[in-house]
Structures are given as C-alpha cells and as structure tokens.
Amino acid sequence: MAAERKVVVLISGSGTNLQALIDAQNTPALPNARISLVFSNRKAAYGLTRAAQANPPIPTAYLALQPYLKANPGKTRADYDVEVARIVLADNPDLVVLAGFMHIFGEGFLELADGVKPHQEGEAPRKPVPVINLHPALPGVFDGAHAIERAYEAFQKGEIQHSGAMVHRVVKDVDRGEPLIVREVPILKDEPIEAFEERLHKVEHEIIVQGAGKVLAEAKS
C-alpha cells in the first residue's frame, strides 16, 4: 500500500479551487492524497465551510495579519509569515498549495518551507516542502493582483489575443517561480468579462489538480 501524501491548502475566499482538490483526493488525479489542513487568512472565507462539510471533514485554521499584529505589539508582517508557516507545516505535509490565497509571503514563510531555518529556536530545520501557487495569467505577464481584469483590459486595447492560467512553484518574487502547468485561455470578441472569467476558472480547477499531482509524483520518484 502506497504511503498517504498530506496536502495543506491555503485560501482566502470561496474555495472553488479547494473544492477541485477535495474532489480529486484519492482519485487517479491525486492518488493516495489527503488534504490534512485548510488554512485561511480571512475568517469569513467560504472555503473553510467547504472544508468542514467535506467527508470526512478537513481540519481548518485561521489567522489574519491585522488581528495578529494587534494582538502581538512589536511583531511585524515577517513574524506573521513565520507564524503561518509554523501552523501550515506543523503536520509535515508533502505539499502546500496556495489556491486563491491573497497574501504575499516574504522570506520568513519560504525559509521554513524550504528547510533553511528551523520552526523553533534550537530545533533542526525540517525537510523542504514544495509550495505551489495558482495564478490566473501566463508566465511573466500580469504578475500580482487583478490579473484577470488587467488581461481583459489589455485585450480590449488590442494588446493581447489571449490570456491563461498557470500553476508555478512559489519563490520570493511574486508569480515568478518555475511554471509547472500552463494553459492558454482565449478571450472572445465582445464577450463580457464575467464570461471570460468563468472559462478561466474552469481551467484553473483542472490545472490546480494537475499541478498538485505532478509535484507529488515528482517527490515520490
């Protein structure tokens, strides 16, 4: 029997990409995989409800930046990133997936995930854990927030013919890590942005599962 692979998913919103991962657990797309934790930086994120309603229910955790800073005078955004890393990596997952997670991590998170620094002082660093992100744009184009709106606007101006989505490894530079899965999505003439967005999201639901499966397969081989 193959060993079970643990996946932690980070979300900020409704969790439709999370749902795609939940549905793919223990199927040929994600064999022997289990989502062991869903973490959100927003308390009202519906993705937390999706996790709680999954069968079996998936444990959840929540920590937002501003309440954390208010409760810990003298702490910084970098301290928050380290605290999130400790929560997310506590169970030694095999993969961390950012699925619509609207917070940009600094080096504090990545140093723990990459096994560069220990989780607690005096501990030895743990094994590196791959971290991947879903981004609704093609590599090197429309990095950062509002990528869908910016691509749609560029199409209206005649600057591009299509956009797309990708799953990439997370590095310090936003949306600049190695692309793992890349899919082009055409923008149709005269279509409203909502229609383009809906088609793009369908692609995202497919590639986030493909990207997770690819990294887990690579880690096993």
Rank of each mutant, 00 (worst) to 15 (best):
A151K: 11
A99Y: 01
Y62D: 00
S163K: 08
L188N: 08
V82A: 14
H135W: 09
F39Y: 13
L65G: 11
H146F: 15
P136V: 05
A71V: 03
I132Y: 01
D23A: 05
A99Q: 02
V97E: 05
T49Q: 15
Y46V: 02
R176T: 11
R183A: 09
Q120W: 14
Q53Y: 12
L48Y: 13
V182G: 04
V182E: 10
E204K: 02
L188M: 08
H119F: 09
H205D: 09
I104R: 10
A2Q: 13
R126N: 05
E111I: 13
R126A: 08
V84Y: 06
K70M: 11
R86K: 08
Q19P: 12
N32Q: 10
G211P: 10
A147M: 13
L18T: 08
L95G: 05
Y80R: 01
E194I: 15
E111G: 11
S40M: 02
V82D: 05
R42L: 05
L200K: 05
Q156W: 06
E153R: 07
L98H: 03
E111T: 07
D143T: 08
T76E: 02
E204C: 04
L65S: 04
I207A: 02
V131N: 00
P192Y: 08
A51D: 10
M102F: 06
V167G: 02
